[in-house]
Design a protein around this nucleic acid. Structure first.
Lengths: 176, 176
DNA sequence: TCAGCTATATGATTTCTATCATGTTGCAGT
DNA sequence: ACTGCAACATGATAGAAATCATATAGCTGA
């Protein structure tokens, strides 16, 4: 980490990698927050176990995504991080990460930018999910993202919180 | 703005206030981004006009909330900001705000913290809205927030994206 | 090439919630 | 004490989507 520090994830250059097997936890709820994590490969899910036993999946982190950014400012984790596939996770002590952010304004700004964009994206997502009918949700999604590639429609169904049959029915209706 | 600069919104200390009448716009989609805004009083809605004419409400900003943080890094706005009540908005040139963030690491970190917490909150909100039944959404909400005060249930209904009658029915079911 | 998986597609039935309707309660302001 | 409003509450009905079922197309690896 000699000189280039323009993006916040550059802070992880050279950071040690921890390998996590599918199904294993990176951290668990109530664990003390000591490190900051960046997913290098694989996918890791943030899950919050509910009182009824069924876990709520809060987030799916893929390669180059941070894990639980908000935990940077918390004492303990409020959710579990569980690998959905074998994964490689870069980790740095929290204090190290925070110190770098303090020292490199460009890195701080890039983190602000990343988070601000995510807030924006999520706001749109929330409003789409508040809509009642499949047709309205699809309209809104298409307005924001445009036509998806072939083979991607099923992912759209997931994103707009609708069953695949319901989406295909709506698409069929629009063709006729 | 002599010395204290621990929180990002301290940057707005002494910034000029713009009064916006109910129904008026602070900015419109496609406008060039030149300023950063902080709502001092009243409420301002971020709306994205959809192709079908019905606007999607992306966010409601109240006192002490920033408007469209993500626009800090964009050339033009991607949504409208419309006052829902008479409102007072503090504004600063974008370059001024960014320069302060660069100069004051504490301010940068507080902005990162604010955004990270919002991301976390929104993730939970999204997962609640993905649940199909009122009962599940209510369970999840209660698990995250705990029992609301009397007089607050109606807000819960709104937050979990459910009609008030549906919520009260579910509550009645649980009492029996 | 064939098997297997995933996306696409559509019909029938069931389940849920929105909506409409209506009524009660409790508080704030006059 | 009265008025008005908002929250709380519940019944009836209609509409929408989940679910279950089933089928075809297209790609991928053995």
């Amino acid at each position: 980490m000699i000189s280039i520090m323009l993006q916040w994830f550059d802070i992880f250059d050279g950071a040690p990698i921890r390998k996590v097997a599918k199904g294993a936890a990176v951290f668990r709820q109530e664990d003390r927050v000591q490190s900051m994590f960046l997913v290098r490969s694989g996918t890791v899910a943030l899950e919050r176990p509910m009182t009824d036993g069924i876990p709520l999946t809060l987030h799916i982190a893929n390669a180059d995504m941070a894990l639980a950014e908000a935990s940077l400012f918390a004492d303990t984790y409020h959710c579990d991080a569980v690998a959905r596939t074998d994964a490689e996770i870069a980790s740095l002590p929290r204090a190290t990460f925070l110190a770098k952010i303090r020292d490199y304004p460009d890195a701080a700004l890039s983190l602000i930018e990343t988070l601000a964009k995510e807030v924006q994206t999520q706001r749109a997502q929330i409003e789409i999910l508040r809509l009642r009918r499949v047709a309205d949700r699809l309209d809104a999604w298409l307005d924001l993202h445009g036509e998806p590639a072939k083979g991607e429609w099923i992912n759209v169904a997931d994103q707009i919180g609708v069953s695949a049959p319901a989406l295909y029915r709506e698409l069929a209706k629009r063709r006729n």
